[in-house]
């Protein structure tokens, strides 16, 4: 099922993708990227859900969520050269019913544009 354009999704940002100074564009590069839908689970409820589930290995810490609108994401793909068609499919998981995946192969150049466009919500615990 396609996720509607008006929805916002978040991508979890961990220790391996942020070193205290810069984010890694690779967080948004590749295909079938895991994101999570704020229409299903609120941002506040995402924090304990992700901390409990995927803080592995030891020391890997959830630092932030990067939020972007689904229409905006698709528009970034459409306006990129060469054009890349992006959409988001809902792929609920047992532990995260809000789980979704970004379809389309995001290149490093486009990943950098997405990184510039996201709104970052920092963890209060970092």
């Amino acid at each position: 099922m396609h996720v509607a354009g008006e929805e916002n999704v978040v991508r979890a940002m961990w220790t391996d993708k942020y070193d205290g100074e810069r984010f890694s564009a690779s967080a948004f590069k590749g295909s079938d990227l895991s994101v999570s839908r704020l229409a299903v689970i609120s941002l506040d409820d995402h924090w304990p859900l992700f901390r409990d589930r995927v803080q592995f290995p030891a020391g890997r810490t959830l630092l932030a969520f990067a939020e972007i609108n689904v229409s905006k994401l698709a528009a970034l793909g459409r306006t990129h050269a060469p054009q890349i068609t992006l959409w988001v499919d809902a792929v609920p998981l047992d532990w995260n019913p809000a789980h979704a995946e970004v379809r389309g192969n995001v290149t490093r150049g486009l990943a950098n544009r997405i990184l510039d466009a996201v709104e970052v919500h920092w963890s209060q615990l970092r």
Partner: peptide, 15 residues
């Protein structure tokens, strides 16, 4: 840290 700790199955959904 990556060399020492990031063996198989880390990250979201263990991928």
């Amino acid at each position: 840290y990556f060399q020492r700790c990031y063996s198989q199955g880390w990250g979201e959904n263990g991928k």
